[in-house]
């Protein structure tokens, strides 16, 4: 349990830090990837919905603190992202990296469009094609590529956690 908390804290902390400082220097076509949501997706996919929701919540809360107009918006988005992906992972062959890439693509699409929707719908005209064409599609592809690296890191942790759980169950 302690091991899990420490590992997740370091992961969340690092991803937020890298995203907020170096995010701008790894832009492609003016769009930066979102490492934190990739982390949420992969953790939720490999582990379960509780851990996904907790990691999502804290990632979102950090994002609210660093860059956000109100506290709680990204926390809520992260919470649901982690929970939903964690809930469907039993039906997937989750230790396959292709599943992770595909799921990252789809959920980035849904997640970013919801962020766009909730931050725009009361303020001005909503568009469908423009934000998808200019930002979301590029970001989804970029995130999918990054998901491979994060998958490699998290699956190592996942195996370690599983072993640890088995050992502790024996006694």
């Amino acid at each position: 349990m302690k091991l899990k908390i420490i590992a997740y804290t370091i992961l969340v902390f690092l991803s937020v830090l890298i995203q907020s400082t170096l995010g701008d220097s790894i832009k492609i076509y003016g769009v930066k990837p979102n490492i934190t949501i990739v982390l949420i997706i992969i953790v939720a996919l490999l582990r379960n919905n509780t851990e996904g929701a907790i990691v999502g919540f804290f990632c979102g809360l950090m994002q609210d603190a660093v860059s956000g107009t109100v506290i709680g918006f990204y926390a809520l988005m992260g919470l649901y992202l982690g929970f939903i992906i964690g809930s469907i992972n039993k039906r997937l062959y989750r230790e396959n990296v292709l599943i992770a890439i595909f799921l990252t693509f789809v959920s980035t699409f849904v997640y970013e469009y919801s962020v766009y929707f909730f931050s725009t719908f009361l303020r001005g005209p909503l568009h469908f094609v423009d934000p998808i064409k200019n930002i979301i599609l590029i970001e989804a592809v970029y995130n999918s590529v990054i998901s491979i690296f994060i998958f490699i890191i998290v699956i190592k942790l996942h195996i370690r956690f599983e072993e640890y759980d088995k050992n502790s169950r024996r006694y």
Binding site: S20, T36, S67
Partner: peptide, 10 residues
């Protein structure tokens, strides 16, 4: 630091 997402300029 800059904004983490792509939507805002904060």
């Amino acid at each position: 630091a800059k904004d983490m997402g792509n939507w805002f300029d904060i």
